[in-house]
Amino acid sequence: MAGLPEHLLRRSAEARAKAEGRDVEEVLAELKGEAPPPPQESAAPAPAAADPEPAQGDTAPVEAPAPAAAASGPVRDLEAESAALGVPVSLLQRAMEGRARTEGKPIPAMASAPAAAPAAAAPAAAAAPAAAPAAPAIPEGVTTQRLLTVVKAGAIQQVKSSPQDKVSVWPHLLAIEFVALMVVTAGLIVFSVFVDAPLLEFANFNEQPNPSKAPWYFLGLQELLSYFDPQVAGVIIPTFGLIGLALIPYVDKNPAVKPSDRKLAIMIFSFFVFASAVLTTYGSFFRGPGFNFSFPWVDGIFFDF
């Protein structure tokens, strides 16, 4: 039993001593190989010892029947049955034992001698009349357990992601999209029936309307032209505006998505959205002839879509 830690050996000895009703020190000494095993009945000699790789002592079934009980059961000729059914003797015997155990009957004795069974039928030997399980006949220096692998706690990958609350796209999302699409189409058609797209006079290079306005989405920029140099309002601001927009994800390093955790970003963005909305509205409706300030309710609206 070399190689086993002392405390494990002691625990094993205590358990066995308790089970067998013997003294702990005695069992321990026996396990260590210091003392010879207590003299056993000579009735159970052969199978275990003859086995080249001795089974652990615990495999000997505790519920091995008393020889007297075995003798009282009906005798079956397993060899003959095996030949007739084509089933190995060992399996027949195991089935027989199992049936007997569940029915609470004594295991019937068998005609074939256990010692004659092949090595594969080693458990069959247990049925041989043995009064008590034999102490393990493990040679010195032989370890009866093997270390297969060591699995560290963190080494197992957690592949399964936490479950998310999901719904089927069909019908839930597609239905909403379809309705949204229909509503917008219907709204657009109704609007188009009642409001015609503007068409003024034929293009005339010699007659510039006053005021001349860009399309509405550029009117914020045109409004800026009244305050800044054309290079600033017409080129630098829109160029840097677009580049700045594109750079937002690389500038804003804050990983939070909750509005309360990103107040600065929201404030800055909202400022620009609001400013462009104000400038666009101003340029669209509050600029009259000469692109001068005018109230739309006084001088009329100088704006076409």
Partner: peptide, 17 residues
């Protein structure tokens, strides 16, 4: 038309700067 011509004139003049 006049709207198209002059809106685009104003808009594309900005690019010329």
């Amino acid at each position: 038309d006049q709207l198209a011509l002059w809106a685009v004139t104003v808009g594309s003049n900005m690019g010329a700067y």
